[in-house]
Nucleic acid binder design. Structure first.
Length: 490
RNA sequence: CGGGGUGUGGCGCAGUUGGUAGCGCGCUACGUUCGGGACGUAGAGGCCGCUGGUUCAAGUCCAGUCACCCCGACCA
């Protein structure tokens, strides 16, 4: 575990402040748990957005936008859904302030809303309220909509990136004519998330079903991708829900099928959030700072000139400009940092902190020899290459870094996944190395609950690819057919 | 909401039995530097979280209050 993720060393705090700061309105407890994402951190989010959005479009989805406020009455239509979110909602009750006569302002009691508005914790209700008027015939289906938005969940305890009171996310909400089609969509989207996590974020994930206890409020089935962080805890990185006809029934969304029969619509929803930035940080960082997979790095290559005199700089700049142009022409993002306000050593450290995958240093020596020094962030190794080969080398290097970061994370997960058959081992492994535990479970919610009470470990998912295997429940000793994934989680 | 901890320049912290605030980093200026977070000199920057009390005197003692952090309940 990178030390700067677990304590407040100088570097940690500088790096952290560079990426994100907490809202510093110390007087106002209402912004507790919210975050300010500074430009570099937000650039990472933009890369995530772009990558996902492309995949959504490729799978036939379109973007739309629905209101931030949800009338209270909408929210109470689906019983399990209310139950799940009731305890964490921010509510708007008034719409105006007035002078309090003491130089301050107060809420104008005259402005009380007839019906309170809930700030969306998720948008199923307001979206299905719209779908009601959009869907009448099988010809109106399917509806495959995604929304990029912010949501608010008034959590009791927050943790930057992993659980903030307000967070940015995307939520897909689809409507289908048949159960099979909706189930297929649910599966399709968890696959999209897994692809993105593994191929773009270099984050190996385990796909699986959520147990009943962990299911989304209002869903018949929840699929999730689970990733292992460097501190041995699990992180739920994305979910896809099969909602059945629950929301269609709650909002009375019926359509006439091909045979003229009236049917309720089948639904799915799925989402990932700014938590993915947290996942990236917690999964790949080392003691020198962030390590970003090239596909998500806002800056993929930084060029740093080493010079004493202005004349030297101008020669270097010419070479750097050529490299930059070459790299950009093959789609690589490059920053040339020719500031004379910081030393090269300072810049090296700074870009390492920011996780920039490849660094090119050019000094007078290189100019003389027609070479450059190329360093990679993941291993911190550096080598001298001839100038004319730079574009080729860098292109390969970025691909290799992407692969190696993934391999490293995968190796870490493999080394920290334990197949356990006794309760003693289960408890020991949880405490000692932590990590993922594959163990048998009798399938009951009571057992899951008891395991959670005694160890704080929960069933992260029932992996899709967990093989059939005779066994006995780790806790109750009752028969079991499959191992499930246990871990302590965020 | 329960348990623990912390509030002192931008950041990280020290501050003894109460005597009127300091260190490192950062910041500004100038000079020398520049192939792994350079160095020197000179500066700027503080309602010691807030309120009240004790005292000749409070960063320090007392009471209250607010905020933040960690652990639990809740959760993407």
């Amino acid at each position: 575990m990178a030390k700067f993720l677990t304590n407040r060393e100088e570097n940690y705090s500088q790096w952290y402040n560079d990426l994100v700061i907490k809202a510093d309105l110390a007087e106002n407890s209402a912004v507790r748990g919210c975050m300010v994402i500074k430009p570099y951190g937000y650039a990472i989010w933009e890369k995530i957005q772009a990558g996902l959005d492309k995949l959504f479009k490729e799978t036939g989805h379109v973007n739309a936008y629905f209101p931030l406020f949800i009338p209270k009455s909408f929210f109470s239509k689906e019983a399990a859904h209310v139950e799940g979110f009731a305890k964490e909602c921010a509510v708007v009750t008034h719409y105006r302030l007035k002078n309090d006569g003491k130089g301050g302002v107060m809420v104008d009691p005259e402005s009380k809303l007839e019906e309170e508005l809930i700030i969306r914790p998720t948008s199923e209700t307001i979206i299905w309220n719209s779908y009601k008027s959009w869907i009448h015939s099988y010809r109106d289906l399917p509806i495959l909509i995604n929304q990029w938005a912010n949501v608010v969940r008034w959590e009791m305890r927050t943790r930057l990136f992993l659980r903030t009171a307000e967070f940015l996310w995307q939520e897909g909400h689809t409507a289908h004519a048949t159960k099979e089609e909706a189930q297929e969509e649910t599966q399709k989207m968890i696959n999209v998330y897994a692809d993105f996590a593994e191929n773009s974020m270099a984050l190996p994930v385990i796909k699986g079903f959520k147990s009943e206890n962990e299911r989304f409020a209002g869903a018949l089935d929840t699929y999730a991708i689970e990733a292992l962080m460097q501190d041995g805890k699990a992180l739920q990185a994305g979910t896809s829900h099969f909602l059945g006809q629950n929301f269609a029934k709650a909002f009375d969304v019926q359509f006439t099928d091909k045979t003229g029969k009236l049917e309720y619509v089948w639904a799915t929803s799925w989402g990932v959030s700014t938590r993915l930035i947290g996942a990236l940080i917690m999964a790949h960082s080392d003691n020198n700072g962030l390590v970003l997979p090239p596909k998500l790095a806002p800056i993929q290559v930084v060029i740093i000139p080493i010079f004493r005199k202005i004349e030297q700089l101008s020669v270097i700049s010419e070479v750097a400009a050529g490299i930059k142009k070459d790299l950009e022409s093959i789609g690589i993002s490059v920053k040339y940092d020719d500031r004379d306000t910081n030393t090269p050593g300072w810049k090296f450290a700074d870009y390492e902190l920011k996780g920039v995958p490849v660094r090119i240093a050019i000094g007078p020596r290189d100019i003389e020899n027609k070479t450059v020094e190329i360093a990679r962030r993941d291993t911190l190794k550096k080598e001298i290459y001839p100038l004319e080969k730079v574009a080729l080398i860098v292109k390969d290097l970025l691909e290799d870094i992407q692969k190696e970061i993934y391999n490293k994370a995968l190796k870490f997960r493999q080394e920290n996944t334990f197949y356990v058959d006794t309760w003693d081992d289960f408890v020991k492994v949880l405490d000692q190395p932590g990590g993922f535990i594959m163990a048998h479970w009798d399938g009951t919610a009571e057992t899951e609950e008891k395991i959670k009470e005694e160890t704080k470990a929960t069933i992260r998912c029932i992996p899709f690819d967990s093989p059939e295997e005779e066994g006995k429940c780790i806790y109750s000793g009752k028969p079991s057919r499959k191992r499930v994934l246990f871990a302590r989680s965020y």
